[in-house]
Write a protein that binds this DNA or RNA. Structure first.
Lengths: 293, 293
DNA sequence: CAGTGGTCTAGACCACTCA
DNA sequence: GAGTGGTCTAGACCACTGA
């Protein structure tokens, strides 16, 4: 089910959108190496360095030098077999290594491409302030038009017993009922963020937080209306490789980690929300502002 | 060259050290599967799901269920070949997938182990404040003893022309000379963080910032003494897979991303330092405190 | 349709670990 | 020296893309 523009708030702000590269992938670009018909880099089998690593190093050098340009295909595996004089599995090992590093992207039936520089979205935390929260109509949907992409959001609400971690973060007993707001944010149809928000049911009962559309100002506004004036937020940031489930939703290029942010919102005397956000690591940067005193 | 305890400050604080697991690897533990001599999970070759993925799913399930416990070895590749009735390369593909997810760790000549739960260090930003900076003797070395590990630091100082990115962040011209403080922090001999700090030479000239040992309170104290009172910091957080160079220093387990933090320190009217920090993603969590208004 | 990457086999030999 | 993972070969067939 989809929710309208009123349902979002207190999310990250699209503070600035940086397009660090705008290369179209493949089909139109002429790879530079096709003109050059270059000599193969020689693989030294007695050097002790595995052949597939030597091949990877050679390809990496050509990417760095610009001979293989972002967005263009590298020679096919069978061509590389001839160029380097090793078997196809060895070539594939080299490519696998570079894919793991995030330098190459394989597309079945099309070719292997130098990863195009991606559009990086910078999320600033400065606008989590009360004024900013009330002023804008919801971070994700609000700034989307400015960023030039079409936003959409899938939202589900359910009620679950709190697991151990949630209970600890919220300062409640495990098993106590929590309201779970499960969200997938998309830009131009592509999932860019998963956000799972959990609040004690004792806090949300009788408020619009228990339905999909929380109304203007979003969940945080409803919290403050119902007597839970927000005092501060805490964010825990970590990074890891995506689980298969996350990978199926976010579809990150292979070799790209996810950034995990757990935000805990505190009212004066208690934690009122824990929000677990997962985003593709190559599409986001988080910006934090820290006063010197 | 090594520097003493006086040279560190303004770095992350070891706010809390969480040992989430203390399993010894391998040799002493009896893997549970050895007792059970389990029946092989059947691979359905007509399902359309690649065999190596089916094997990976089966192994992942055994890890999740606890049948393969953290720190213990899984059956050898040749044994798995028999169990699942596929070739060794196929088994290796399955293991490669799980290594990429960070679930397994291979050790040459010893076996493949379920990744032990690692010690996570939580870095809180709350103590970047002026009082905290002057109160403690340097974050990394100071809190190390509390965390129960032996810290060491390698530090080099050099002077370079500013590259384009540094120049933009510092608000100077590209090519202008900057003081580069290059640091590797180790816990019990293991590198856990790389930090490269760059300051305009015009700011550091004549101060202890240009030598390895900056003295009590560290570089930030010297900055404030020389008239650059710090106003605020900005941190940009991102995640990606390590470059080969980073991997050789940090030696993260395969399949573990690095967390990248770029901190810019601002005096009243100008940026005075940009500090690029790189840490192994499985060993760190960053904590940020954000006021509600 | 030809060309691409994806999957898989049945071997081989090497480097490393540990009893 | 036995067992482990690491590397490598020379094939095979499949699924997908695009002219």
């Amino acid at each position: 089910m989809y929710c309208g523009s009123g349902g979002q708030t207190g999310q990250y702000q699209f503070d600035r959108l940086t397009r660090t590269g705008a290369t179209t992938v493949g089909r139109l670009d002429q790879p530079a190496w096709r003109a050059a018909e270059e000599a193969a880099t020689v693989i030294d089998k007695s050097s002790g360095v595995p052949a597939y690593r030597q091949v990877a190093t050679a390809i990496r050098a050509k990417i760095d030098s610009g001979e293989y340009a972002p967005g263009t295909p590298i020679p096919s595996e069978r061509v590389l077999v001839d160029q380097y004089g090793v078997s196809r599995p060895t070539i594939r090992d080299a490519i696998a290594l570079l894919r793991q590093e995030g330098a190459l992207i394989a597309e079945h039936g099309r070719g292997v491409f130098v990863r195009p520089r991606t559009t990086v979205v910078r999320l600033s935390r400065s606008r989590l302030s009360r004024e900013a929260r009330s002023a804008n109509r919801g971070a994700f949907l609000g700034d989307a038009t400015a960023g030039g992409f079409t936003p959409s959001t899938t939202m589900k609400v359910r009620f679950d017993p709190a697991d151990e971690r949630t209970a600890e973060l919220l300062g409640i007993d495990a098993g106590e009922e929590v309201t779970v707001r499960d969200r997938v944010m998309r830009a131009d149809g592509l999932a860019v963020m998963i956000a799972v928000s959990r609040l004690p049911r004792s806090v949300t009962r009788g408020t619009a937080i228990e339905v999909v559309d929380t109304g203007p100002g979003g969940a945080y506004a409803r919290l403050e209306e119902s007597g839970h004036r927000l005092d501060h937020f805490e964010e825990i940031v970590s990074a890891r490789m995506p689980t298969p489930e996350e990978a199926s939703i976010l579809q990150p290029s292979s070799g790209v980690p996810v950034i995990r942010v757990t935000r805990v919102a505190y009212a004066a005397d208690r934690a009122v929300e824990v929000n677990d956000m997962t985003m593709a690591g190559d599409r986001y940067e988080l910006i934090y502002h820290i006063p010197a005193d």
